[in-house]
Amino acid sequence: MTKATSAARDDRPPLLALVGPTAVGKTAVSLRIAEALDAEIISGDSMQVYRRMDIGTAKLPLAEREGIPHHLIDILEPEEPFSVSMFQSLCAEKIREIHERGKLPFLVGGTGLYVESVCYGFEFQGDSGDEAFRERMRHFAQAHGAEALHARLAAVDPSTAARLHPNDERRIIRALEVFETTGRPLSETQAQTRAAPKTSPYRLCLIGLTMDRAALYRRINERVDAMIAQGLVEEVEALIRSGVPQDAVSMQGLGYKEIAAYLRGECSLAEAVERLKRDTRHFAKRQLSWFRHMQDLVWAEADEEGKIDDLFKSICAIIAGKFHLDLEYIR
């Protein structure tokens, strides 16, 4: 149990959030923190919402969740679309429900925009958009290829193009649509949004896990090897066999698009695995870049060997300071 010390009154509900790059060790320490603070975990991962996509998303099996409730996991079929605005709405609802139960909402994940949108209540335009423009761009990609569509974005918004994989057709078209309708690159709009001072609808404690870069990359490589050993190829094969379109949002996730390319005969398994390792390392680098610009974030250093006692203590000290808790009451 925890006990609050005297502090200026703040009636906003508390929200604890833990972010960090893939493979840094968020899952293990989040379980320890959730147990100590009587918290319920909300997944801040844009891929763990999908059922039947377990290995490639590093989804924690139900039996290993130690009885701690986990939310926004396995809520959609792989064929269904998902967006940051949908996540934001669902997450706000879960935070409210958890708070009403007298528990601490604990948002854990590595999808920076998703987590930040909840922490600061970003406002998003509706998803309707210019469907006619999107259809023209889809036809363009079919006629000229993914690289040509990506090059088209690079010509008007090189920053966004640099962070999107050429096969990520949906996001490339969305970025082109923003430029078409506003005359401004998506990257410019996002930069201005992120630079503006933000206020949170919550009493927010935002913690980021980091690790020596070389150590993190070793862990990423080891994780990919473990995913292959656990049956990632078979998981992707089963999804395709069940009729999940390979251009679905879910199939653009790390691990799925690389293995799908292997299954289509476009590369060897060894080449697919190396691409996955490379793409995951690049993704971790982008995650860290995003997190470094997040307002209010306090960093904690993770141990390469996965030892979490010292990490747990340092995180508890951060939480105690932010939420005005007595450390001795954190079990």
Rank of each mutant, 00 (worst) to 15 (best):
E123M: 07
I228H: 03
K277V: 08
A229C: 03
L113F: 13
M137R: 05
T280W: 03
A17K: 00
T2L: 08
S6P: 13
L15M: 04
R219V: 09
T160G: 12
R331E: 13
V178F: 09
G110I: 07
F283V: 14
E40I: 11
E123R: 12
M47H: 11
T5L: 14
T22H: 13
A229Q: 10
N221W: 09
R275T: 11
V118N: 06
Q190S: 13
I319L: 05
E131F: 15
L186C: 04
A39L: 04
L113H: 12
A148T: 02
V236N: 00
S250G: 06
K307C: 11
T210V: 12
E64H: 14
P14V: 00
L15S: 00
S83R: 12
E100F: 06
A143F: 08
I42C: 07
P61I: 09
E135G: 08
D310N: 11
T57W: 01
R138K: 11
F124L: 07
L206K: 04
E66K: 15
V19F: 07
L216H: 05
G20P: 13
I228P: 01
L297H: 05
A196V: 03
D38C: 06
R65S: 05
Y256P: 00
R96C: 10
A63L: 14
A23Y: 02
S289P: 05
E274L: 12
D74L: 06
R213M: 12
A58I: 08
V178S: 01
H71Q: 06
C267G: 09
S187N: 03
R52K: 13
T5C: 12
I319S: 00
P245Y: 02
P197A: 09
V118S: 07
P197S: 03
R286D: 10
L176G: 07
F87W: 08
L325V: 08
P158H: 00
A175R: 00
A261W: 07
A34H: 08
F87P: 05
K257R: 15
L176Y: 07
I228A: 00
V233A: 06
R138P: 11
E177H: 01
R194E: 09
I42W: 03
G56A: 09
R219T: 11
F106Y: 10
I240W: 13
I319P: 02
V29N: 06
H99Q: 09
V249E: 04
T182E: 01
I73N: 00
V19A: 13
D303W: 01
R134S: 14
S43E: 06
Q287E: 11
A215T: 15
A248Q: 04
A317I: 05
R264H: 13
H99F: 14
S314Q: 14
E234A: 10
E131C: 14
S289D: 12
S159K: 14
K307Q: 12
G56V: 09
D247E: 09
